[in-house]
Design a protein around this nucleic acid. Structure first.
Ligand code: FES
Ligand code: FES
Lengths: 157, 157
DNA sequence: ATATTAAAAGACCTTTTTGTCTTTTAATAA
DNA sequence: TTATTAAAAGACAAAAAGGTCTTTTAATAT
């Protein structure tokens, strides 16, 4: 039997999660003067190493960050580049229609053609959009300042 | 090349969308005294007919609604049953952890171990949970009262 | 130059999701 | 009883997501 009672869905897909965590980790290390490599990134963000490599390479190809091959190489953000909103990354991976459509799955979503969920759902969707627009890889990396581990017990004050 | 720039992700997966729309459509028709069949449901909710059949059957097996075989048959909600919150359906299909975890994909999500998104994300997640807990198949069906088409131009007043 | 290091490219594979279709079972109608 | 109708069951398959691994390319160090 397939379908009912599966594992449970996250907000973003795995590739997006790994990409976001990877980018933030790179920026955290960059702020400390380091350029992490794939093996280190994968270990620190708890992602499959080879898959992490593939994802990081895609991000470089998209121009989100730079990489250096060979000894002493790794990944880094060019300092002159503007901050990178999470939304840009998410949409590059999941498509531009992410969190833009009707929660009920209808073709059109607007005030003229609202589904029964629209009034309650639209503000939530707007909040999500604000969240991923206002937060950047850099702002999250700054939040991690001074922490040695991204994965557990992060921002306790 | 795979991965970057895909189609775009909806809030729920397809099976969940079809299930929710199908259930609401059945309830709308029940309120009018009809018991729709698979072909009609699929057409009205804009879903693949065979897949719709499979999904409706799973929902029956889960006990969310009843079905009657043979001539004059179709799907119906037993009137004595309590209203069915969307969340129950969603979790039966997508798993109980849906919209429960960290938006950043971390293993733990609580006030003691917040990721940099937690403070902004947790209230949004709570709103989503409220939305799918408070709205039921029946409440949405009542919202559709008097409408002949679930798919376009629905609740204009 | 040569060896070493590390990312890039890309082939390949597994699992999950989504979807199709045929056969079987149960109900009703003639 | 027989034909018809419609859901149930389940095999099968295509597409997408997730993941692995090998080979190639580019940089550095000796
Ligand atoms: S029409 Fe459904 S959320 Fe806007
Ligand atoms: S810890 Fe990330 S959302 Fe709560």
């Amino acid at each position: 039997m397939t379908g009912l009672i599966t594992k449970g869905k996250a907000v973003f897909n795995k590739e997006t999660e790994y990409a976001l965590r990877g980018l933030v980790y790179v920026q955290v290390q960059n702020y400390k003067g380091f350029k992490p490599g794939i093996a280190e990134i994968a270990a620190e963000i708890d992602a499959p190493p080879f898959y992490t490599g593939k994802i990081m390479q895609r991000l470089v190809k998209q121009g989100f960050l730079s990489s250096i091959k060979g000894k002493g190489g790794g990944f880094l953000f060019e300092e002159q580049k503007p901050e990178l909103p999470l939304k840009i990354v998410i949409q590059a991976i999941e498509g531009t229609k992410t969190y833009a459509g009707c929660g009920f799955g209808l073709k059109h979503c607007d005030e003229e053609h609202p589904c029964p969920l629209h009034e309650q759902f639209a503000p939530i969707r707007n909040s999500i959009n604000d969240l991923i627009t206002l937060n950047t890889v850099q702002s999250l990396a700054r939040d991690y300042h001074g922490l040695d581990n991204m994965l557990l017990g992060s921002l306790r004050r």
